[in-house]
Structure formats: structure tokens, C-alpha cells
Simulated assay, not measured.
Amino acid sequence: MKILIIEDEPKTGDYLRKGLVEAGFVVDLARDGLDGLHLALGGDYDLVVLDVMLPSLDGWGVLQTLRRAGHAMPVLFLTARDRVEDRVHGLELGADDYLVKPFAFSEFLARVRTLLRRGKAQEPEILRVADLEMDTIRRRVTRADVRITLTAKEFALLELLLRRQGQVLPRSLIASQVWDMNFDSDTNVIDVAVRRLRAKVDEPFEPKLIRTVRGMGYALEAPEQP
């Protein structure tokens, strides 16, 4: 599960990131409202932990922009603003929870896990496009009722493409979501992985579902019917 923290206080941000990483999460940290918004809009996060008082753009503005852009990932406000009016305002803007500083990390972690369980429950367990089907719970992939065996990375790559079907995914996004690494333009790891995935889910079948968008990335979608 991938979490974005938007927190400008260095000690608090580092403390949260360290604790969440130790709890088994992949964590990005932004120390500025605009930087955090850019990451949230471009990344595929399962949860955003958001301060209110931030440089460049406050937490209210970050949340409003996310919701107007159609992003429904859970958002947890973590802030020193403890007035009832602030809590109500945050929840009315679309926050899923509101925790006031100072806080106990055990309570923070419990709230994070609760929000992630809710978000997970809203995601479909069966993903389909054309005759390709993925059961994310049983970790089973079939195409035209033929069972396809994938490695863990191939499964994660295909799941990302299926959940974002129809969208062109840049190599940088695929690298961060599947390999949890920054994209190096000199490496061809993404292209090799897509080629191997194609050999299993596309080459033996028709129609072809994975397409390359030159200079941009990859997309998975069923071709339009004539």
C-alpha cells in the first residue's frame, strides 16, 4: 500500500515516514502544498496524510483540488488546528478522518489502517477487459478461459494497467508503482517487463490489448469495435 504524507514540519514528516515504512508501507513525503498536490494528482496513492498549514497551498486547497479532479483516495488530516469548526470544515471538504496534534503514533497507525481497509473494500476484486480477467484476491489471471501464470512483478504490472485501463501510463509512473523506484531513462526494465507480459497475455490471443504510445508510455484497453 502506498501513502503520501504532505507535512512541512521536518521532524513530524520524518517521524511519520519512518514509522509507516517500519509498518510495511511505501511512503512518499512532500513538504510543500503544491509539491504534495502534484504528487497526489500524478501518483496512485492508497491514502494521503495531509497537514492544514502548508507553504504555497494550504491543506484545504489541496483537498478541494483533489476532490474536484475526481480523486477519491482516503485523506486523513493531521493538524494542530483543533477547533470544532476546523474539523467540520475538513470533513465537509471531503476528508475521511481528522486527527489533532500532538498524537500517539499507535492511534495514528490504527486510523491509517482503518481508512485503508475501507478504501480496499471499494476496489473491485475482479478486473476485466475484453476476455482478460484478473481475480486480485485469488491471484488468478485468465484469458479466453486459459489460465496464465505470472510472476509477482508481472501480476502487479498487469493489475496497474487494468485498474487504469484506457489511460496512458508513463514509464516513470509504472516504475514508482510496481518497482518503487525513481525512473532512470537509461534503464529498459519497464520495456522488458511489458514485453514479457505481452508474450503471456497478448501474443497468443486476439485482440491485442497492451499498446505502446510512442514517447509517452503504455496503455491497456480493448480495441473499439468496427
Rank of each mutant, 00 (worst) to 15 (best):
T142H: 07
G119C: 06
A152H: 12
F155H: 02
R171F: 13
I137D: 10
T136N: 01
V141S: 01
S185K: 13
R128I: 04
D135C: 00
M181H: 14
R164P: 04
K120P: 06
G119R: 07
L173A: 09
T187V: 15
A110E: 12
L162I: 06
R117W: 04
D184P: 09
P170R: 09
L109C: 08
T114P: 11
V189E: 15
R196C: 05
R171G: 11
A121P: 04
V178R: 04
W179K: 14
T142G: 05
V194A: 03
K120M: 10
W179I: 13
M134T: 00
D145Q: 13
V189N: 14
R143E: 02
S172Y: 13
D180H: 12
E133K: 07
I190M: 03
A152R: 11
E123G: 06
T149P: 13
V189I: 15
L127N: 00
L162D: 03
R171P: 09
R164W: 03
A193L: 05
I126H: 01
R147K: 14
V168Q: 11
D180C: 14
L127C: 02
S172F: 13
T142Y: 04
L115G: 00
T149S: 13
E154V: 03
R147A: 14
D180F: 13
M134Q: 01
F183S: 08
D191F: 09
A156L: 12
V112T: 10
L150H: 02
E159R: 11
R143V: 00
R143H: 02
L161F: 08
F183D: 12
R113E: 08
A156H: 11
E125M: 11
W179C: 11
R143Y: 01
A152P: 06
V192H: 13
V112A: 04
Q177I: 12
V189S: 13
D180T: 14
G119N: 08
